[in-house]
Amino acid sequence: MKKLIAFITLITSIQVVVAQDSHELIVKVENIKDLKGSLKIAVYNHEDHFLSNAIMSDDKIIDSNEMTFSFKGLVEGIYAISLFHDENDNGKLDSNFIGIPTEPYAFSNNAKGMFGPPSFEDCKFEVKADAREIVISL
């Protein structure tokens, strides 16, 4: 019985520590020109997974020139964001015949790429306090 009580106490303590270590990231997207389609956003936590394996993602139907996304449960660390305006709601970033995107897109830090997307290094930011807010211009 003592072992069971000790185990329950340990599990409860771990849950409290985990809850204290998780943070919320608020992403405000500005400069949305057309009120059609949806906005798709992805959060990455490592350079090796940037633009290929998001740890969190969301999408919303566009109903305003500014939209806000909230990501909860993030631990302290380095992150980067990519997003795009899926104007025709086909679930992908459309591009022309040479691969240049034809739909608006953006990255955290409003980073711009040269001959391709920006690097994780250019897009990265730190989450170390609750309710961290960043602003991205589309």
Rank of each mutant, 00 (worst) to 15 (best):
A19H: 12
I11P: 02
S13M: 11
D48Q: 12
V16L: 13
G116E: 07
Q20L: 12
K60N: 08
R132Y: 10
P101A: 04
F125M: 08
L74H: 03
E103C: 00
F97G: 03
I62P: 00
L51E: 01
L25D: 11
I61G: 04
A111Q: 09
N96P: 05
H46D: 13
I11C: 12
F115W: 12
S52C: 07
F69H: 03
N88H: 00
F50Y: 15
K33W: 03
E87D: 07
G37D: 00
F71C: 03
K128N: 12
D34L: 12
L74P: 02
M56R: 15
I62K: 02
G99T: 05
H85Y: 05
G99C: 11
N31T: 12
V27W: 04
G116S: 08
M1Q: 07
K60G: 04
S22K: 13
E24M: 10
A80C: 07
K36Q: 14
I81V: 14
V16F: 11
K36M: 06
N90W: 01
A6T: 09
S82P: 02
L35K: 10
I8E: 07
I78R: 13
E87Q: 14
V75D: 04
D58V: 01
T68G: 03
S137V: 06
F115V: 13
H46F: 13
K92H: 11
L39E: 03
Q20S: 06
M114Y: 11
D94K: 02
L39C: 13
E47Q: 12
K124Y: 04
